[in-house]
Write a protein that binds this DNA or RNA. Structure first.
Length: 286
DNA sequence: CTCGGCCTGCTC
DNA sequence: GAGCAGGCCGAG
């Protein structure tokens, strides 16, 4: 679900609500009979999570690509939201969220009770999300595998060209590869390619230096604007205060197959590249 | 690199 | 009932 702009929005909202508070109680809601990977991960860490989180103070909330990091006074908790992961934070007590049954519901896997009293809920319908306590070197190893932050200084047209050079794979697939640039997902990859007027099927090695410059700028502009609008809600993205994003109204191609291209008016297309639905304009993107 | 698998829920 | 959904990992 969440790509960089959504995770950044979550980070900003969460930061306001949890930094400086202590974790008073850790509630892991792991169904006994399921052994999904999320639950296996949690079960493996269950005792560790409880003992290492309880009593800790949350010092900061960081983001790297699509990962959230809760810095504690001792250690850190890394959270990846997968496709449908959500974080809610609210004063303790049953939490009404967008017409859902009160939280915690059957998809709520972790509840952190904080001083305040404040509650943080981790909810994930498809259970592709991950939650891990990691050491310094583990965090380093994990993040070392990621490419540059698209809004950071290390990301340039040259780094993009490096990621594309010699690659036969379509540029769309390369943009989804987190080693090339870290934080783009399916929505923003399609949006950035449209803004750069580049056909998503173009092999990486055929991207010209000029196109790399345009695409670099398109990626930055798209992500910055999406953060300004607090992310995209297609179906189940909500921020920790259960507010929808605002960028879905500004998408130019994603989720609009058959609708007129905002640039030329011809119907937008949808196909599959790298097993992902890909939206583009056959006339504008070459 | 691409593919299938991991999950639940929604739409056709 | 099939296919699809904002992500990633491991196998080939």
């Amino acid at each position: 679900m969440p790509e960089l702009p959504e995770v950044e929005t979550i980070r900003r909202v969460l930061e306001e609500k949890v930094v400086g508070r202590k974790i008073v109680k850790v509630e892991l809601r792991i169904p006994k009979l399921t052994a999904t990977r999320l639950h296996r991960d949690l079960r493996g860490q269950e005792a560790v999570l409880r003992t290492r989180l309880t009593g800790r103070r949350i010092a900061a909330v960081r983001r790297r690509a699509k990962y959230l990091v809760l810095d504690l006074d001792q250690g850190r908790l890394i959270i990846h939201l997968g496709m449908t992961g959500q974080i809610f934070a609210a004063p303790a007590g049953p939490l009404p969220v967008n017409g859902l049954p009160l939280l915690p519901d059957k998809h709520t896997h972790v509840v952190l009770r904080l001083t305040g009293p404040m509650c943080v809920y981790f909810r994930d319908i498809r259970q592709f999300g991950r939650l891990r306590l990691v050491s310094d070197p583990e965090e380093e190893r994990l993040f070392a595998r990621l490419g540059p932050e698209p809004l950071g200084r290390a990301f340039s047209p040259q780094t993009l060209r490096q990621g594309f050079s010699g690659k036969k794979a379509p540029v769309k697939a390369l943009l989804l590869n987190q080693q090339v640039v870290a934080g783009l997902g399916n929505i923003y990859a399609d949006e950035a390619l449209f803004r750069a007027r580049i056909h998503p099927q173009t092999p990486g090695r055929r991207i010209t230096p000029g196109q790399a410059r345009t695409l670099h700028q398109a990626i930055r502009q798209t992500l910055s604007e999406a953060i300004r609008f607090r992310g995209t809600t297609m179906s189940d993205y909500y921020d920790p205060e259960s507010r929808k994003g605002g960028f879905q109204d500004r998408l130019q191609v994603y989720g609009r197959p058959g609708e007129p291209c905002p640039n030329c008016g011809r119907p937008l297309r949808k196909s599959r590249i790298a097993q992902r639905g890909t939206h583009w304009c056959a006339h504008c993107q070459k």
